[in-house]
Design a protein around this nucleic acid. Structure first.
Lengths: 343, 343
DNA sequence: CCCCAATCCGTAAACGTTTACAGCCATCGT
DNA sequence: ACGATGGCTGTAAACGTTTACGGATTGGGG
């Protein structure tokens, strides 16, 4: 772990100036003989360029940050899986932040852009507050938001269409003959919570079904909280025949509770999740789920950011990824596995 | 995105020298009046310290790299989930690398430590080659390996005990009356592949069961390859009554094939996976799996590395995490869920 | 044979910090 | 009243690169 060689060491050994060393290492035009000497010296010394010094001078770190709400949520992991290779291919390193959807932490990440340790940021906030918007407006590096952002916010963003997604699911349940369709949602002060709640109401009304407050239960976007919410709902409304869950984790919690209480899925109660994570296909019974295109959104975000890093200027862009419904056993019964297109 | 203020800007505005500014910002003893002036100027200007310049001078980046074999494998994600908060709490940022278990990429990561863009590295290689050992010996920053490493390698490492793990699983299957226990393994030139293959043989022999080459099928550590391997095995040996799978993804592939071929799990064939990932509990039927303590290993690795970063010297340390068997429906039948201690 | 252009190279400044060192001023003791 | 003491502060160097600029060398044309 001794101090490594610098371009000074090389210059000395090769008998040239540090400027020449730098030129050779960067492939700038140089006499053959000099190139040879420098390369030889660098090889012998096992030289590796100091990234920090280079960044200081060149004002580029070749790093990009990804701030995810929760490292544990498979939907974000699906994004990560797409983002990583895209950035890597373009020569960027990925710095990971887990904010646990805490607003202060997200603001902190935005603020720390000023430290200039990354060239850009992809962020996926669950809530978008005034503070977010303020920081975004003055951000010291290009930012891409995964998720919806108020009209007029000047930032590139990639959004899911959870409105259409919920609609696909509710229509599917209706087509299967379900009429007492409940919704298990996450907090309404989150962007997806609000959107999905509203979409559920809309979808019911368009089908001519009454909107019944008692059929809506708010919990949080995690498995135990989902289970708890479903237990409460079943207590109050034993007659439900379908559960529209605001994400897969909630839906898995729902399956746990239904199994424990002796209800058959889907015969007694059909269950739909959202995000179509790995867990949906692997669950027991396998879970019908609305794919909101996590993978595609991750990829799109990475590509948008790369364009900005390459210097593309211009109006903020909005990319919307269409949803798809993956039908599985939790609504259609054992052995069933099929997909319906969205939009 | 204009150029931000530097300590020079602040010094000018506050009417002091840059040294004083630096001292104030770092909390070194300074006259009250100066502190006030500097803080005021910094606030007004919205100053944020440049991390790159700071790193160059202080020779610390407050970044740590985690090189995982595959961002898509839930076992590594479980590690990531533990590593992230530990590092964050200690003030480090996490830089993620996905090497896809390609040796050249791993060597590259090790090599790039010379760029000094991180203060330390956690790496989880599937194979450990001569090249790895060479790079490890001359690494320019502290490294912790998750996985086993040849005797005498001078590097901190955190290992699973897959030998005992396989034993737990095979004993469990034996206790359930299974006698034709096949193994579906990954490549034998990987560290886990070799260890688990040997352990399987040993476990059988200790139970007085014959080791039958025809009961061993080599594929790879992914779901489709697992499925393929199981299909090949069933073709050759239709009489197997248990499958010991070298990881959960293989086991899920096994479940797919068994379902398609009309075999009942566990009545006809019992299935055990390894790693006890999220997918195991969520699968259909739920999957009995040997936990090799991915989460614990990640946490331990992060903690070992932090100690080194704090300057702790001394002999390389080896931490071994004991396995646990999580019994679920794929061996014990519907509704069964219980855990047995390891060691 | 001389001059000019082209080519290559070295010197030095710059990126934004941290920090060793020395100077300054006020205070205190005698 | 004077030297010593100690607290603050400023100057300047350093971290390891990249790069503008000008000087030196080479080669070719007149």
């Amino acid at each position: 772990m001794a101090d490594g060689p610098t371009i000074n060491t090389i210059a000395e050994r090769a008998g040239v100036s540090i400027a020449s060393v730098s030129r050779v290492l960067n492939g700038l035009p140089t006499r053959q003989e000099t190139v040879r000497k420098v390369m030889a010296a660098a090889d012998e010394l096992g030289y590796v360029r100091n990234a920090v010094a280079r960044s200081l001078k060149s004002r580029r770190t070749h790093q990009v940050a990804f701030a995810m709400a929760d490292v544990g949520n498979p939907a974000y992991l699906a994004m990560l899986r797409q983002i990583q290779p895209v950035l890597k291919a373009a020569g960027y390193r990925l710095v990971l932040h887990s904010t646990d959807a805490v607003v202060a932490d997200e603001i902190d990440v935005l603020h720390s852009l000023g430290e200039r340790y990354v060239d850009g940021l992809i962020m996926s906030p669950l809530r978008v507050t005034e503070a977010h918007l303020e920081m975004l407006a003055t951000a010291r590096a290009p930012v891409v938001i995964i998720g919806s952002v108020p009209e007029g916010t000047r930032v590139d963003n990639v959004r899911a269409d959870s409105r259409t997604g919920v609609r696909l699911a509710v229509d599917h349940l209706y087509a299967l003959g379900r009429r007492r369709i409940a919704m298990i949602n996450g907090p309404l002060d989150t962007v997806p919570g609000a959107a999905r709640g509203a979409a559920y109401r809309e979808a019911l009304e368009d089908l001519g079904l009454p909107y019944d407050e008692n059929l809506v239960q708010i919990g949080d976007f995690y498995r135990p909280e989902g289970a708890q919410a479903v237990a409460a709902l079943l207590d109050r409304e034993p007659g439900v025949d379908a559960l529209m869950c605001a994400n897969d984790l909630i839906a898995l919690g729902a399956l746990d509770v239904l199994r424990a209480s002796g209800k058959r899925v889907p015969e007694d109660v059909a269950v739909v999740g959202m995000d179509d994570t790995d867990l949906a296909a692997a669950s027991w019974p396998s879970l019908t789920s609305v794919s909101l295109g996590s993978a595609e959104r991750g990829k799109a975000a990475a590509e948008l950011l790369l364009e900005r890093l390459r210097g593309v200027e211009g109006e903020p862009r909005v990319v919307t990824v269409p949803p798809r419904l993956a039908v599985r056993a939790s609504t259609a019964g054992p052995g069933y596995e099929r997909e319906e297109g969205g939009r």
